[in-house]
Amino acid sequence: MSAPSTTAPTQQVNVSDLELPQLVEVKRQLEEELSHLTSSFAQLKQAQAKFRSCIESAKEVKRENKDKTILVPLTSSLYVPGKLRDAENVIIDVGTGYYVQKTRAQAVKYYEGKIEYIKTNLDALQETIEKKQDNMSYLLNVIQSKLHQSNNKH
Rank of each mutant, 00 (worst) to 15 (best):
residue 114 K to N: 14
residue 104 R to K: 14
residue 111 Y to G: 13
residue 127 E to N: 07
residue 123 D to W: 07
residue 112 E to K: 11
residue 108 V to C: 11
residue 97 G to P: 05
residue 116 E to Q: 02
residue 89 N to G: 03
residue 104 R to S: 11
residue 113 G to F: 01
residue 100 V to I: 14
residue 112 E to C: 15
residue 111 Y to M: 06
residue 125 L to A: 05
residue 96 T to I: 11
residue 99 Y to V: 09
residue 90 V to C: 09
residue 109 K to H: 14
residue 109 K to R: 00
residue 97 G to Q: 02
residue 103 T to E: 02
residue 93 D to T: 11
residue 102 K to T: 08
residue 94 V to E: 12
residue 128 T to N: 03
residue 120 T to H: 04
residue 112 E to R: 02
residue 104 R to N: 01
residue 125 L to Q: 00
residue 110 Y to Q: 15
residue 125 L to P: 02
residue 93 D to K: 00
residue 91 I to P: 11
residue 123 D to K: 10
residue 88 E to Q: 15
residue 97 G to V: 05
residue 89 N to L: 09
residue 106 Q to L: 08
residue 116 E to R: 05
residue 118 I to T: 01
residue 88 E to V: 11
residue 122 L to P: 00
residue 125 L to H: 00
residue 104 R to L: 10
residue 109 K to W: 10
residue 115 I to Y: 05
residue 87 A to G: 07
residue 115 I to E: 05
residue 98 Y to F: 11
residue 96 T to L: 15
residue 115 I to S: 08
residue 118 I to G: 05
residue 123 D to V: 13
residue 106 Q to H: 12
residue 114 K to I: 03
residue 114 K to S: 01
residue 122 L to R: 12
residue 92 I to A: 08
residue 105 A to D: 15
residue 107 A to M: 12
residue 119 K to P: 01
residue 122 L to K: 13
residue 116 E to G: 03
residue 117 Y to D: 09
residue 106 Q to C: 10
residue 109 K to C: 13
residue 106 Q to R: 04
residue 106 Q to N: 06
residue 126 Q to A: 07
residue 96 T to D: 14
residue 103 T to F: 02
residue 94 V to K: 09
residue 122 L to E: 08
residue 122 L to I: 12
residue 113 G to I: 01
residue 122 L to S: 01
